[in-house]
């Protein structure tokens, strides 16, 4: 019975895989986070088929190498991820299990956004007692639109290398993106002038690039150490500090537990806001950024 079943399944698989190979035109892209999915979709247009491994509701540090992800990596022509150890718990495992040579480190199909730009907060000392720190620096680079522009140019070049037949399309898309992005950037910088010097409290240290870009000043972090949930002792310290030296808002990422932020909001009347950590499905980067800037300005006013 058992052997019979295995034979049957084996046969089914062979037939199935033969059929699956027939439809092969678009470039299969495996994006680790939704921001890279949105960027690749915009730069690749109709020539790419993009799969996002996570949504903005999922913490990209803590994803498991699920069977469905292995299956997706197996067929990917291009991997677009953050890098800088953000996906260290699951991406290496996916790469090893997928048996796909095209997307291994050093190959054309392996694109890490963090390799294209310089990172902030590279720690001088690597010690786990400091929490979950990243040796290469803070990986949440997608909150800096200037870095995003650089990454977009590099990604566009990569698409041309992988799929030279569609290079005209990629070049056109990149020009359109750059024009749109620069225009939007000017507008955001104008709108966000009011935010310069605003004091903020953050749940996790995930906003350094946004802080740098908009001139926000981080006065406290709810996590005592990166990746360690806020303790009541630490929260009461933050509370006393904020009573003496108040901040304008508390920022939490959409995938983070916002209990501590809500508690602090009640105690201090400082508004707590939850920012989408990446674009939603079918949302473009411009739309997503616009929302964030508008929400920040609105809460500040």
């Amino acid at each position: 019975m058992f052997n019979w079943l295995i034979t049957k399944i084996g046969l089914a698989v062979v037939l199935f895989s033969l059929c699956a190979n027939a439809a092969y035109a678009q470039i299969n892209v495996f994006a680790c986070e939704p921001e890279w999915a949105a960027l690749t979709q915009q730069l690749g247009g109709t020539a790419v088929k993009v799969f996002s491994a996570t949504t903005s509701q999922q913490d990209p540090h803590h994803i498991q190498a699920r069977p469905s992800l292995i299956a997706r990596v197996r067929r990917a022509d291009l991997l677009v991820c953050t890098g800088a150890d953000l996906e260290v718990g699951w991406l290496p495992l996916l790469l090893r299990k997928s048996g796909n040579g095209k997307i291994l480190p050093g190959q054309r199909g392996h694109f890490m956004a963090a390799d294209q730009v310089a990172l902030l907060e590279k720690p001088a000392v690597l010690d786990r007692s400091l929490g979950d720190i990243h040796a290469a620096g803070n990986p949440h680079i997608h909150f800096d639109p200037r870095r995003m522009q650089k990454i977009a140019s590099a990604l566009s070049q990569r698409l041309i290398i992988i799929d030279p037949a569609n290079s005209a399309l990629y070049q056109q898309n990149q020009q359109d993106f750059t024009q749109q992005w620069q225009q939007a950037l000017k507008k955001w910088q104008q709108t966000a002038k009011a935010l310069h010097g605003t004091k903020i409290v953050v749940s996790h240290n995930s906003w350094v690039y946004l802080e740098q870009w908009l001139g926000l000043i981080k006065v406290a972090t709810l996590e005592p150490k990166p990746g360690i949930p806020p303790s009541s002792a630490h929260l009461s310290t933050v509370l006393t500090q904020l009573k003496r030296n108040p901040a304008a808002m508390i920022l939490t990422a959409s995938y983070q537990n916002n209990q501590a932020a809500r508690w602090l909001e009640k105690k201090t009347a400082i508004p707590s806001i939850e920012l989408a950590f990446g674009p939603a499905k079918n949302e473009t980067l411009v739309q997503w950024f616009e929302q964030i800037v508008e929400l920040l300005v609105k809460v500040r006013a």
Binding site: I9, G10, V13, F16, S17, A20, N21, P67, S68, I70, A71, R72, R74, R75, K97, S98, G99
Partner: peptide, 11 residues
């Protein structure tokens, strides 16, 4: 062997 399918299938 991992099959090229959306549903994970490994033999």
């Amino acid at each position: 062997y991992v099959a090229p399918t959306d549903t994970f299938l490994q033999l």
